[in-house]
Simulated scan of single mutants.
Amino acid sequence: MIVFPNCKINLGLHITRRRDDGFHDLETVFYPLPVTDALEVISAPVLTFNSSGIAVPGDAADNLCIRAFRLLQQDYPQLQPVAIHLHKHIPIGAGLGGGSSDAAFMLKALSSKFQLHLSEASLMDYAAQLGSDCPFFIPNRPCYATGRGEILTPLSLDLSTCSFLLVHPGIHVNTGWAFRQITPQTPAYALQEKIMEPVDTWKDVISNDFEQPVFREYPVLAAIKAAMYENGAIYAAMSGSGSAVVGIFPKNKIADIRWDASYLVYKVS
């Protein structure tokens, strides 16, 4: 079985409260894009994980795909071992949710492969145990997210008349550091309402709280965003806590911008 976990972008992101459990409450809009990894799951004598493409850091035994398998196996001991191969194409540590997507798609693949017939709600409950934005990739449709990112309200947001440019300059922004730079506050506008207005109204309204401290620390990210606007973007912003920057352009009108050769660049028409 092969599935193709896709990335997400954040459209607006506000940190609203520091919780007693050490996490933060936030609000954001998740929007899926078809930049994908490839995840293969086949029956095998023992549980294994290997990867290709962009290097996946850390111990393979702690990979989210392995953790997803073991999480389901606790409740479904009949799950037989599988060999997992992940071809990594979504940049890691970019604010695009690639690891979370891999974990969520692993849950869905296992449910299908072993005929567990898990409901969407059940899969989302499992996904929430793996990461704050993992549940989004179960329904995998535009959502307004609150809580830690796991409380999802579907949105009828359709950006099919737009094209997207994702640029990742290889910078890794430490998420814990980024959160420590933010003073939580009540947003100045209702994101859930403003996001439904035309995209060309977003530039001076819809914001990401992480941009100010992250751009101060990594000015190249601000320069990427500025270059997008200078070359015709309707809207541009950093996704999540970074460091991918997303530009939204009129359909099939992404500018041919000359980026540093080391940057990872993805176009979605």
Rank of each mutant, 00 (worst) to 15 (best):
F4D: 02
C7S: 14
K8P: 08
K8T: 11
I9Q: 00
T16H: 10
G22S: 08
H24L: 12
L26A: 13
T28R: 01
P34Q: 06
V35D: 01
T36I: 12
D37Q: 04
L39T: 02
E40K: 04
I42A: 13
S43C: 09
A44R: 01
V46N: 10
P77G: 10
L79V: 09
L79K: 06
P81G: 14
H87D: 09
I90P: 02
A94E: 06
G95D: 02
L96G: 07
G98P: 05
S100E: 10
M106D: 00
M106F: 03
L107R: 05
H117L: 03
L118T: 08
S119P: 00
E120I: 12
D125Y: 13
D125A: 15
C134R: 10
P135Q: 06
P139H: 04
N140A: 04
R148N: 08
L165I: 12
H168V: 03
T175N: 11
F179T: 02
P184R: 12
A188N: 09
A188K: 08
A188G: 14
Y189S: 08
A190D: 00
W202Q: 05
K203L: 12
I206G: 06
N208D: 13
N208R: 14
F210L: 11
Q212Y: 02
M228L: 15
I234Y: 01
A237I: 08
A244E: 05
V246P: 05
G247Q: 11
P250Y: 00
R258P: 10
D260L: 10
Y263C: 15
Y263L: 07
V265W: 12
Y266V: 13
